[in-house]
Design a protein around this nucleic acid. Structure first.
Lengths: 337, 337
DNA sequence: TCGTCATGAGAAAGCCTTTTCTTAGGGAAT
DNA sequence: ATTCCCTAAGAAAAGGCTTTCTCATGACGA
């Protein structure tokens, strides 16, 4: 169906190699008249070379794959933006794979990318602590690397792979201190994916800072979504009326909490303070206090690491800073429950 | 570098075709012992078939390309979500191309997707009215279709192509009537991309509704971004103090306007009402009145049209409804300037 | 016992390009 | 005029895979 080189060569009255030499910008000498005829033929037929066949031959990778939980979530989509920034500059095609935070789907997609001979894969997915996952993902990455690909993870301290990490613990401690300084002692935490390393670190940091002042954490496990935050906020405040501050382990959850609070006429921050993690773009508009992760930069850095010449042997690990951004949703704890 | 079928066949002590028949799930008969040996060898070597070579041969398209302005913008990323929904269900790989709203880049990426023998392309990009663009995009789409691809546009009434459209004019009229009913007569409009058909329709709808009540539109041209909305809001209100309502032709601009108003202590909606278009997810949290477009459904529908068997000849055009969502940022016009 | 026919393994061709490898032809040099 | 060399065009191979096509083997009937 598609026009191929043979069609072009035939129309130009030359052999296929000659046409190839003209069109692929080879420096092999081709007579001027033949060259012109080939170019004309290609234009007239609107010849578009088959990149798959080309890749089969030379095989330098021109595509990047990104494994993300879901592009719904601004956390992931901002990381994708960062990847795109670098990819666009390098004329790389970016393939996005939604894993829906499912281990098997993530591995399946990774394999599919490998099958398509994707050169670089950014694993921004789960980062689960689950041993089976760690083992299987490790195996897949080794296989991918062995076949000449470059994989870089975002997070994933368990798996042995080049990665970009952030100081989740430090950021969480900062947030914890911010809250205790405001007098909060009973903090409700809306937990997203509990078995993911970043969540674990965030909880540890919060706990350290808050318990240091004699405070208590009230956990409520859910999903890293707005809806889960909405529901969870109600449950936490009903179960523990003494809570004066709510923290979501992801901004989406904190935003859901804000929504619940608004609908139930609780004033923020006078009655309840709210804070989150990641500082997605929306959080600024909602005036949400959040621990900022340089999401975009994380994506960009990951791809840059992948593109950089492979290190002799050592693992590349780049740590990017986190930063507490205080906005209007956190304030002094109310004194009366 | 990568393991190929020859390696597997060699290790299993069989010929390449036999290995292929086992691994590609052919129904050609292969003796049980050989089959087992091939499977073992493939597992041991972690053989991942080369999808590019396979595609070269059979050529049924397994990838979808999406041309978007920028994945930054929730407008586009929600459309992408819709595409992903359908693609995931069909086990298609989705390649996202950021055109940065640049005509030439959009065409270049389209060509690149075509080169990679992408089977389906969703053009969610500009939809410019510019004649050169319309001509070149038309030519590219014809070329793509002729080579067996299926392209579907979102918007783009100018180009002859299957498309998903929305009732921008109707939605805009609804919003206009909502505002006039609240007493607004001087409406500032933050215009995003002026030369795009959806913007033109939105302005026409607003103008019709507001001029019908003797009102006036004050236009300010900018970019479809939060920052542009922020700046534009200030400029419009300074230049035309009689303005009581601001409309952004994209929610992002309205959100920027909200931000400017908050920082300059203008109460919303008591002093100034604000509304936007598209109803991106954030708008709900910001309580922004907006003309909702079923963005996710638009993306999903576009891919569904592309996947559906090609119609005999006629163009497929699916119109999806728009709906005014009234929230807290619009209220009665103040009576004193 | 010989011929026939499944059965199933491998050789070969083809998908689309690019890159050697050959070789035909023309000009320069002797 | 003859040899030599260079230019440049086409033939051939390669890249990884699938799908004919060919053919050897064994089982079976006559």
């Amino acid at each position: 169906m598609a026009v191929n080189l043979r069609d072009v060569a035939h129309r130009a009255g030359v052999s296929v190699p000659t046409a190839s030499r003209v069109l692929s910008g080879s420096d092999y000498p081709v007579a001027q008249d033949l060259r012109a005829r080939v170019l004309d033929a290609a234009r007239e037929l609107d010849y578009v070379p088959n990149a798959q066949a080309q890749a089969l031959l030379r095989g330098d990778p021109r595509t990047v794959g990104v494994l993300v939980g879901t592009v719904d979530d601004p956390y992931f989509s901002e990381i994708v933006n960062g990847v795109q920034d670098v990819a666009t500059a390098q004329h790389l095609l970016v393939t996005i794979c939604n894993t829906d935070r499912d281990i098997d789907r993530e591995l399946e997609y990774f394999r599919l990318l490998q099958a398509h001979r994707t050169g670089y894969v950014i694993v921004a997915g789960s980062g689960l602590v689950d041993p089976r996952y760690v083992a299987e993902m490790g195996a897949r990455i080794r296989s991918f690397t062995a076949s000449g690909g470059r994989a870089v993870a975002i997070g994933h301290p368990q798996v042995e792979v080049d990665r970009v990490v952030t100081d989740n613990t430090g950021g969480a401690e900062q947030l914890g201190r911010h809250l205790t300084a405001l007098g909060h002692r009973h903090v409700g935490v809306l937990v997203g994916v509990a078995s993911v390393s970043s969540t674990i670190e965030r909880l540890a940091g919060l706990r350290a800072a808050i318990q240091a002042k004699g405070g208590t954490l009230h956990l409520r496990h859910g999903e890293p979504t707005r809806d889960s935050g909405y529901t969870g906020a109600g449950e936490l405040l009903d179960a523990h009326p003494q809570i004066t501050a709510l923290v979501g382990t992801a901004d989406q959850m904190a935003i859901g909490a804000l929504s619940w609070l608004r609908e139930h006429d609780r004033r923020v921050p006078e009655q309840v303070s709210v804070a989150g993690f990641n500082d997605i773009a929306v959080s600024r508009d909602l005036q949400l206090t959040s621990v900022r992760l340089p999401l975009r930069q994380m994506g960009a850095t990951a791809l840059q690491i992948a593109l950089a010449p492979a290190p002799d042997d050592a693992l590349v690990q780049t740590e990017l800073p986190t930063e507490l951004v205080v906005r209007a949703t956190t304030g002094p704890a109310r004194t009366h429950p």
